[in-house]
């Protein structure tokens, strides 16, 4: 366990110093800060606009950070030959991969925590009358995004065991888009008995292989206070369990490929 944590810690230290990630983070933070100014441009209520815009910024920024951070983790180690020094020590490849993944998740967590902190601050300034319960409700969305991004990082880590960073960027981005925009559609088709059997099978396969990223978005329940989840806690727990299961599948798959890979 020490080996994995050491690799994770080093990965965090390096990730939070990567300029490209810091620039993406800075752009995200900038949008969060100017969000109150932009909300006056919309005809909808300023609360609705502020919440949907800021959460959208956090989701998009986190997704870009998660992909850019993870696609380069393994290739960089090979290119700089640090992987040779590490793997010549009593370190299993799966430990190395898991350490890198946990490091990526840790760095992602730190960056998302910063954005969430700024979100809460902006909100407290703009909605001074809002109580702590409103703020806590608002903070649930970034927490679910964090689970979502941890899953996205596992997808990128899986692809990085056999694809180049550029290919991985588009593969992971593609999986994220499909899983965010089309997963509910595939889910509906897969559960619809009136459609053609082949189409249904194809939809089921895609729905199973591609994680449903859309279900981590709990923005609607925050914006529309009228729409309540039947059992909110259970829903969140299910989502976390769903993410852990997929993360495990992607990481184990990645470990199996990486174990045979000639670096």
């Amino acid at each position: 366990m020490n080996v994995i944590l050491s690799i994770a810690k080093t990965t965090i230290g390096e990730a939070i110093r990567r300029r490209v990630l810091l620039i993406i983070l800075l752009i995200g933070v900038l949008f969060l800060v100017i969000a109150p100014g932009l909300s006056v441009l919309s005809a909808r209520s300023s609360y609705t606009v502020l919440v949907s815009f800021t959460l959208g910024v956090i989701q998009l920024t986190s997704a870009v950070i998660a992909i850019v951070l993870t696609v380069y983790l393994l290739p960089n180690e090979v290119e700089r030959r640090t992987i040779y020094t590490i793997l010549s020590k009593p370190v299993y490849r799966w430990q190395f991969l898991l350490g890198k993944y946990l490091g990526a998740v840790g760095a992602l967590g730190l960056m998302m925590a910063l954005m969430t902190g700024i979100l809460v601050l902006v909100f407290k300034i703009m909605q001074a009358e809002a109580g702590m319960d409103v703020v806590m409700t608002l903070a649930r969305a970034p927490m679910m995004y964090f689970v979502q991004m941890s899953l996205l990082a596992a997808v990128a880590m899986f692809f990085s065991t056999f694809a180049s960073p550029i290919v991985n960027f588009f593969l992971t981005g593609g999986v994220y888009l499909v899983g965010t925009l089309f997963s509910p559609v595939f889910q509906d088709i897969a559960g619809n008995n009136s459609v053609n059997a082949m189409v249904k099978t194809a939809a089921t396969v895609i729905h199973t292989l591609v994680p449903n990223f859309a279900q981590f978005n709990v923005q609607n329940t925050i914006i529309n206070s009228g729409s309540q989840l039947r059992s909110e806690q259970m829903y969140y727990l299910q989502m976390v369990a769903y993410a852990i299961a997929y993360v495990a599948v992607f990481l184990i798959g990645g470990m199996m490929i990486f174990d045979r890979k000639e670096v």
Binding site: S6, R81, T82, T85, S88, P90
Partner: peptide, 26 residues
């Protein structure tokens, strides 16, 4: 142990931190 040709180390770390990192792998 292995010392690669033109070794690269995580640049944000000090010589001591790097050594401690590799020590932790043992």
């Amino acid at each position: 142990s292995y010392l690669p040709e033109k070794p690269y180390y995580y640049e944000h770390m000090t010589g001591l931190e790097i050594t401690q990192f590799y020590a932790s792998l043992f």
